[in-house]
Write a protein that binds this DNA or RNA. Structure first.
Lengths: 206, 206
DNA sequence: CATTATTAGCAAGTGGAACTATCTAATCAT
DNA sequence: ATGATTAGATAGTTCCACTTGCTAATAATG
């Protein structure tokens, strides 16, 4: 398959395919001459993954490159995998490092064993800070409930990782972690709608 | 307080404050002359909220404007509020409308009462499509567990909405829905880390 | 074999988003 | 009255994810 067919099959414009090649998101095809290369089914699948990461996953090109590198790495061993996957994932931090104190206090309260400098801790800390800056109170009870729900999900996520193949496991963790996020968020919103509809939520006629 | 002090207090550069004024994210101050205006504490707080929405919340300027308009609207009545809040929230869709069939099938299975054309349904549908495009299998069992966790959170979210003041309620729903999202996502990742650490997750020595 | 289409690879351009800088005329602070 | 500050407007900047336009080489077709 040549580039134009690859473009047709994947629904990605030729120019964009070339761009992804340049950005090393998509591996080069097998060159058959100075101006031609062959692409296979794996390229079609890879483009599907790339579009999913960039679109729904909301990743930048450079983050996607890191994530895909993790997916490709056959050396990635075991428990480090989740760590590697997570550190390849986007942190959306950007600005100064937030105060990790509150976040660590919560983690201690829940007895969670996590790396002290895990990027997710920074994200949590920053999110808590943002809530505070926005004047939104976050009592422990609320966070505890969120933590419990998150922990149930985390257990299920980890339990489902296919243990027979490291390559598949990395794929599973990286993609599952990232692409299930919008699923989770939209389900939460839909659940809010459902609950509020069920309660026929109304004000006492202001 | 004049603009330079407002900028100092909030940590937002003067030029950016002016930009937010232009974009109608921040209400104008009380003008004291043709070239001067007074700002108050509410402006400082509002800037905190704006930065939280734009930064941690990941909203665009135009989406933030819609969200803030919802927060400001004292008319917004009751159960419509959650709907209004949600429709003001970002959909991150952008491209063509996805096939809603699968999403609706799940919602029917769960017996959730949601608006057929709720934006969250589109987000869910698109996320499911992205998973499929990425070659990631999402069996019903997995989604069911996610739905159950999400529904628990949704119940708690709705139960905590302060019913005594419509204005506060809108604030709570909009900010809570948006700014707790990164909290939830980071907690899920941390829970994954915790679970995988506990299991001393290892391969059988490849 | 001649002609047309396609391709790899590269450089430059585009459009949107979120600021950031500059300027002017008015006003304030001392 | 002299320097600092401000509102308001316009223009410029930076970054990002493409997109366009090229060239020289190769492939497909009649």
């Amino acid at each position: 398959m040549r580039i134009s067919e690859l473009a047709r099959r994947s629904g990605v414009p030729v120019g964009t395919v070339k761009y992804y090649l340049r950005e090393e998101l998509l591996p080069a095809g097998e060159p058959t001459s100075a101006t031609q290369a062959q692409y296979g089914e794996e390229h079609v699948a890879r483009l599907g993954l790339i579009r999913a990461l960039l679109g729904t996953g909301g990743l930048s090109i450079s983050t996607a490159r890191a994530v895909l590198a993790a997916v490709d790495d056959p050396e990635l061993s075991a428990h480090d995998m989740i760590g590697a996957a997570h550190s390849a994932l986007p942190t959306m931090v950007g600005n100064e490092r937030p105060d990790l104190g509150a976040a660590h206090a919560h983690l201690r309260r829940w007895g969670w064993q996590v790396h002290h400098d895990s990027p997710a801790v920074s994200v949590l800390a920053q999110a808590l800070q943002a809530l505070q800056a926005a004047g939104f109170d976050t009592p422990n009870a609320l966070l505890d409930r969120y933590a419990r729900a998150a922990h149930e999900l985390g257990e299920q996520d980890v339990a489902e990782v296919p243990m027979d193949s490291p390559v598949e496991a990395v794929r599973f963790v990286v993609i599952g972690t990232l692409l299930l996020e919008p699923v989770l968020l939209s389900l939460r919103r839909l659940a809010q709608e459902d609950v509020s509809a069920r309660r026929l939520f109304r004000w006492p006629d202001a």
